[in-house]
Each structure stands twice: as structure tokens, then as C-alpha cells.
Design a protein around this nucleic acid. Structure first.
Lengths: 156, 156
DNA sequence: TATTGTTATACTCTATAACTATA
DNA sequence: TATAGTTATAGAGTATAACAATA
């Protein structure tokens, strides 16, 4: 057996130089430790941040098409195919016929709604845990600052 | 030709439900748009956030071993091998003999130092661009809040 | 002609585990 | 026995491009 891989934001005795000044690196670091906790928290479930987001989007935007979902997730349409194939196989999502016979309307099944409820609780717990060093107002502030990232002139 | 994949943080008319409340999702979103800008900014160079970080760490911690670098980066030792192989092939990093003949001391070459300087400028520009909607103090605040993420009781 | 979903394919990243040489 | 680096291998995730059916 080999040693486990684990991301530790800060290693004693290492000079991080410019990395400490970069907003991008701080975000990346945070993201890695969040992902690690997410994976550990939901190891028992067949879910990832990506798949969880898809399920939430489908659940709250019933009838959405695969192309639109791809656009929301920022991934290629081909990627959505495998995500939905998987959900369909596990009975969480249905491809329903739409007026346009080229496309499907995506819907959660009863089982999908039930599972999503469970996942949401687990994800909420995970999110509280990783942000437990922040007060409610700090969390709000953090989210608001993060939303300003990547905004271009014309978006402000 | 197909349509380009692009992550748009917020799509008109979509209900994001719980995703809007999660700190983790906000971080993920920000990370995606940062990564996209990084890739676009440094497309001409053979560099990624991961490789850039490695170079900075080696440059500022000369003589570091591959195992230690793996630990700092939070990746497997096998991953470091290919990163260093690549840098060695392009003449940016050298594996130097250490006292312990099982391990190497990693160093930047002259060329590596020169390139790192260039990369740093490009990355600084990129970082300013993605955070240009934030004031200096907001940037500082954001970094400070991000550093609190994932902290456990005993680390505070 | 353009669009939707699909498939084929390939590339990157990363992990695990076994190996070797050294300690 | 343990450690550093290496190799082989495999699994995600994602992209591009071409295709069939439909608009």
C-alpha cells in the first residue's frame, strides 16, 4: 500500500512566493480542499459535484433539454449524454419526448426526487463543515466577492 | 465545426436553487471561470496552473525533492515524475544528485528562471484581469476568507 | 442549412500498486 | 523494513469532430 494523497493548503517551511498573492491560487486551493471533503462526505453515494449540480438543475428546471443543460454546466453536449445515461440507468432521470423530435425534456423520476432530497442534506452538511470557520455574514460576503470574479466591464 | 465550450457563471432563466446558497458551488464557479481565463491567457506557453505552481515552488525552494513537491501540490508522487520529466525535456528544471542516492534535488536552470519570470508576468496579468471587479482591499478580504475554508477546529 | 442528441476517439490528469535501488 | 523515484495501468472527465434524424 502507498501513502494516501491529500491536499494540505499550507506545508510548513515552504516558500509560496507569488502564489500567496494570487486570487486565482487562493481559489484553487480552497476548491481542492472543498472537493476533497465533498468526495469523503458523499463517498457512499454515487455522486460528484458535477452530477449533483446536474440533478439540482434538472429538478428545478424540469423539461430542460440536454443542450441547455450542457450550456448551464459549461461542458460539451457529449458530456451531458453520459451523465444522463448514468442517471437514467439508476432510475433518477427520465428523457421525455418533447414537441421537437430531435430533443428530450429531462425530468427527475420519483426516485430521483427522493434521492436529490437526500443528496441535498448531505451536501448542506458538507458545505457547513467546510465553511464552519466562517460566520454567516462572512459566508455571504465570500459568495458575493466570488461572484465578482471574472466579471467583465460590460457585466458590471 | 462545433460550438465552443464556455463556462458562463449564470444563465438567464435558470433556477439554481440550493446551488446559490452553497459556498462550495460559488468557489467552483469562480474556479472554472478563472481556469478558463488562465488557459486563454497562457495558451501560447506550455503551462497550466499546476505546472506554474510547481515551477514557482521549485524556484523558491531550490533543492526540494520530488516527494516533498508531491506533498506540497497534493498529488501522487507518480504525477510529479511526469511534470518534472516534461520540465527537464524543455530544459527548465534539473534533477541534481543529493546526499541520499535515492532522491534528487530539484533546481531551475538558467532557462527555467528566465521562463518563470515571463510566466509570472503573464499570470499576474491574468490574475489582475479576473479580479478586476474587486478593489485591493476586497481582494485581500477574499483571500483571507478563502484561507479559512476547510480549516478544522484544531487549526484555528 | 442548422440543430439535437449521439458516437468514436483522443487527451489530460490523477490514482493505485508493484518494482528497483538505496537507506 | 522503509523510502524515493519510477513504471504500468486504469479510470475519470472532457473535448473535438463526424453522423443521423429532424427542423
Amino acid at each position: 500500500m502507498e501513502n494516501q494523497v491529500h491536499f494540505n493548503a499550507r506545508i510548513e517551511g515552504i516558500n509560496y512566493d507569488i502564489l500567496d498573492d494570487l486570487v486565482g491560487y487562493a481559489v484553487r486551493r480552497a476548491q481542492l480542499s472543498i472537493y476533497e471533503d465533498f468526495a469523503a462526505s458523499l463517498a457512499a453515494e454515487d455522486i460528484t459535484p458535477q452530477r449533483f449540480s446536474s440533478l439540482v438543475i434538472i429538478g428545478n428546471n424540469p423539461g430542460i433539454s440536454q443542450t441547455r443543460l450542457a450550456e448551464v454546466m459549461g461542458i460539451a453536449r457529449s458530456g451531458v449524454v453520459s451523465i444522463i445515461d448514468r442517471f437514467e440507468a439508476s432510475g433518477l432521470v427520465e428523457r421525455q419526448a418533447s414537441g421537437d423530435r430531435r430533443s428530450y425534456n429531462l425530468h427527475l423520476t420519483k426516485e430521483g426526487q427522493k434521492q436529490l432530497k437526500r443528496y441535498k442534506k448531505a451536501v448542506e452538511n458538507h458545505d457547513s463543515r467546510i465553511s464552519s470557520a466562517l460566520s454567516a455574514s462572512e459566508k455571504q460576503q465570500l459568495k458575493s466577492l466570488l461572484r465578482k470574479i471574472g466579471l467583465r466591464e460590460e457585466d458590471r
